[in-house]
Design a protein around this nucleic acid. Sequence first.
DNA 1: AGCTAACCGAGACGGTACGTCTAGTCTTGCG
DNA 2: CGCAAGACTAGACGTACCGTCTCGGTTAGCT
Lengths: 197, 197, 197, 197
Amino acid sequence: MTDVKEARRSIGAQRNPASEEAILQAAEAVLLEGGLANFSIEAVARRARAGKPTIYRWWPSKAALLLDVYQHHKQSHFAFEPVGNIRADLTGFLEHLFTVCENESTGALIRSVIAEAQADAATSAALAAYLEGRFRHSSEMVRMAQARGEVRADVDPLIIPEMLASFVWGRLLTNRFDNVQAAIAAVVDIIVTGIKA
Amino acid sequence: MTDVKEARRSIGAQRNPASEEAILQAAEAVLLEGGLANFSIEAVARRARAGKPTIYRWWPSKAALLLDVYQHHKQSHFAFEPVGNIRADLTGFLEHLFTVCENESTGALIRSVIAEAQADAATSAALAAYLEGRFRHSSEMVRMAQARGEVRADVDPLIIPEMLASFVWGRLLTNRFDNVQAAIAAVVDIIVTGIKA
Amino acid sequence: MTDVKEARRSIGAQRNPASEEAILQAAEAVLLEGGLANFSIEAVARRARAGKPTIYRWWPSKAALLLDVYQHHKQSHFAFEPVGNIRADLTGFLEHLFTVCENESTGALIRSVIAEAQADAATSAALAAYLEGRFRHSSEMVRMAQARGEVRADVDPLIIPEMLASFVWGRLLTNRFDNVQAAIAAVVDIIVTGIKA
Amino acid sequence: MTDVKEARRSIGAQRNPASEEAILQAAEAVLLEGGLANFSIEAVARRARAGKPTIYRWWPSKAALLLDVYQHHKQSHFAFEPVGNIRADLTGFLEHLFTVCENESTGALIRSVIAEAQADAATSAALAAYLEGRFRHSSEMVRMAQARGEVRADVDPLIIPEMLASFVWGRLLTNRFDNVQAAIAAVVDIIVTGIKA
DNA sequence: AGCTAACCGAGACGGTACGTCTAGTCTTGCG
DNA sequence: CGCAAGACTAGACGTACCGTCTCGGTTAGCT
């Protein structure tokens, strides 16, 4: 995460990837340093040595930029891998989510996107769509457990990741990261007991 | 919710309750009409026919005003009453929360407070403290069920309202209010099965 | 004065006269429709379906383009012809100038060039040089009158067109075109009386 | 003409004369240092340590500010006083105008106002109205000469200051200040000869 | 009864950021 | 190499709010 020092030149009548990259990095840096309250297009443009119109050309709103920073940021994260035991899988899933959210930069990003979505319908829709995809993907571990006979067949697989992710969001949004391990154990115990065959 | 038409005068060297009331009502009206994005101290002052310093004198920040509007608004809501059967209690609790959140004005208020808390530490702390009180209060129904022998003694009573409330927040924050009844039934079934003695 | 509808193709490594023409026409149209305040290189490029660099390649500044539009526009105007009587000549000269300036498009052009010259030294110099040529040319009618013995020999012939043109500019720049005929008569009477032998 | 160093505070719900003064002085300084091309509200605000809205609150446009700077600047100038001989009066009038216009700051101001008037109708009207007042005032010296019998009674007194002022404007707007004394003598000689009884 | 202190509506202040527009430069890809 | 196209940095435009301050007026409570 370094400041852009030397001016970039235009590369002609096409999007300049160097500028896009610089803007995304600057946006992330600004968000982390000043928090959501000090996150402004102007500040990002200053930091990235980019013109404001360049940002507005590619991102229609502050929220869109925020979402893009989030997507950009996620690519560096490893994906969670289920191991084939429902208790271990759910525990791992929760631990993964908490790790991501407790990370200062990623946590701030997610909080900012959620906050922004409360004032911007487009962001709200994008966030909901993104979440649905994640839930669908993560529900696979429940489906596999049902196939193995570990979990009751009448359980809606989608509801499990939603319950778990909502729990983590609740902690994230109110900054309560004390006793995380105990909370994970308690939640997993209740849910595993509640869904096992 | 009516606009303030006629000017109020000072009533001397003491807080004017009429002004406070007018400001709270104006704040709520502005929030509902324009959403969080258009909620500004200026707009509230205009609508309430109040001076900006009058607002700043009594509320240190936009977030504080928002929180106060929330508290002011809640007083008109009936409290949820447990009936003494854990499945029915949890179902009723969830239904109550969804009813509150699906209400346009209350939902917008809660969403706004949560969003504001992401940019303002004081609001965040106030929200966390408020939630802890609510969870503690609501956990009583779990404690009673444990006393009745309905629920295992090793279940942390506080975790149940947190799981349920987080689930509702997740839906609220991403505007997903479809199939609420089915979701309630699924969540309650898993949790009740997971905690029953 | 028609808009350029269909795209022109490049004609290879040489200046495209069609583009030059289209740019000049577009510049004139933009100036007339939006006034000097809305006259921009961007607007001209849009209207002419030309790239901005094409304009910058051939005209170093907005002022240069404006001057060129002016020159281009003038070619269609008939020249004023003296008849050999100093009173009639001066009257005709003034009437010609007023006719040119009262014309909406030409007047706006001259006003724009003068205004631009106040912010751009090159335009100022070009305008002064152009005027000197015009004055020199027009002073010929005074010189002829001196040769005929109509006008005193000690009168500087150059001062007469300058006085007359300045008077018209004064009216043009402050948009005062009422009682033009009376003004012409009064001015010509004073000057002819003042210079006659 | 010094920069404003220390911050000014608001003096309550009324116009702050210190700010007005600082803005006018800053505007004049910016105009002189950078010319009309670099005269921007932003630059004035920066120089005056004033907020842009403060400028826009009191001056609706760049042109209005320019006009106000001009008026503010004029107050320090002595008025021209006629002596009672028409040749001397006209000569003095012209010399006065040339002195004013040759002054770097006043000249640049007048040029800027005229240029701005070409793009802004309100400024144009204000300038025309201002000029009419000046002409009416200055025409008094012609009227007095007519009363003394020096000047023909059928001469329109208003046309004389207009001719003279237009002549000076012509020189000002094209930056031609060479041989001013000869030009004054020539113009005065023609007009005095043309109007004397 | 007069004085002080705090409140009120109002609105100006210096600022920051908004989202848009234009300036002038640069590169691409076609002809 | 010229052309249309359009991206780029830079910065001004005019507007909306921010949080602070003073004004002029009003009233409560103390002296």
